[in-house]
Design a protein around this nucleic acid. Sequence first.
DNA 1: TTGAATTTGTTCGTATGTATT
DNA 2: TAATACATACGAACAAATTCA
Lengths: 255, 255
Amino acid sequence: MMTDNMMQPFSQYKFFAELKNAEDRRIPSVHRSKATIDAIKAYILEHNLKPGDPLPTEVQLCEDLGVSRSSVREAVRKLEALDIVQVQQGRGSFVGEMSLNPMVETLVLRYALDHDAGAESLRNVVSIRRYIDLGIASSVVREMKGTSDPELERLVETMITKAKAGEQYLEEDIAFHNGITAYLDNSLLDQLVAAMWMVHQSFIPKMQDAIKQDLLKTAKAHALMLETAQAGDEEAYQDAVYKHYEPLANILDLN
Amino acid sequence: MMTDNMMQPFSQYKFFAELKNAEDRRIPSVHRSKATIDAIKAYILEHNLKPGDPLPTEVQLCEDLGVSRSSVREAVRKLEALDIVQVQQGRGSFVGEMSLNPMVETLVLRYALDHDAGAESLRNVVSIRRYIDLGIASSVVREMKGTSDPELERLVETMITKAKAGEQYLEEDIAFHNGITAYLDNSLLDQLVAAMWMVHQSFIPKMQDAIKQDLLKTAKAHALMLETAQAGDEEAYQDAVYKHYEPLANILDLN
DNA sequence: TTGAATTTGTTCGTATGTATT
DNA sequence: TAATACATACGAACAAATTCA
């Protein structure tokens, strides 16, 4: 079932090769939106455009592809939803960042849908966050061993201070985790961690009271993660990760 | 317990509540597409619809929201791109699966963009796959210890057989990894692993020759993963994971 | 099998909002 | 302030797919 879908992302770009060989080739009369999407993707690939680079105007695309304005607009809308294209009224269309934000949006909606499975859904997200933190332990420790990081230390300080004052520290929290993954030089990982964190956080407001008493515990776990990583102790780092998720694990019945 | 509170993070959907209280309230004249999207999302939430459930027709939405058909269509297009809505010509629109497929599509394009950094992009994806496999080791071993799994064993057999014959085993490969994660009872993890695998595989054709000689090595690593998991040996399982990615790690210069 | 009704797919023309110069 | 370029929105009309009598 997945084999067909799987190969699709690749073969779809063949369309452009055909387009090149026959400039006057027109898109079939039905389902032009899909073909138009492929054509725009192909245009980006062909010209090796990077995020922020301008795309042809809607009218231009209409002429080049031989489709109507509406079809082009609907195609652009789809690409916009995926953050492949950014549209600015009055200016034009540009190549997007292709971030994981659309995924966040979808997951947040999806996990809000069935109320019964809501708790389990949040459990899934938190689980994955912990899996990743455990899985990167070895690499993190190797990269951070013997280093010092004033920025991360400042974040830890701030989180502990805020925790003691009973305040949340959402920004510092994500900044800390991204500061850790930054050592791994993997931009996709950075985004994935940030995305999971955002889905996670979008559900947190409702359980603020439940975790409020554990704010300090989590804040100190961050400190422990930083210490153990810099000390080069992988096992202790993984223990710190478990401690970090312990308050949530208790609430969500994570095992 | 958290069911009702679960709605809280979705203050963005306040629009719909306002719409209900003032029936004649119309969406602002500019950027209706965004508001229309929110309204459709709200409709799904409000009616607690599940994947496959039918949505109102385009005309219906036009009347209910007081916007033109074009606006509704563009809004639906965006939701379709995110797999939040599925549209079938002649039948209607339905709630989508909200899968991670859109993310796969985006990542494949994004990583196909700059050929120079293409290798590093693939490196990122493979790295994440390995991080996850390492991170779930502890839980996998705990869940699989002392069990037996004819299906997984059959997959391992097939992969080794095909490897010896010099054949690829894409389907068996992903089936194996999903068979492992199945023990963790985390549907989002299943999809994430499958998604990363698909992004990964979409780049494989380019390096088929390079990894062809390592087919057997990887196939046997799968066998080792299964054995060590069932034997309850976490450390050996992690070693098996490293072995599993070794051929790729060499090519991609993973550390 | 035919045909009508329903629903989405596509096009065109027109008017308006927005940003740049 | 005016002109230009561009995206946003609307509505009517027809095409194509699906369903059902």
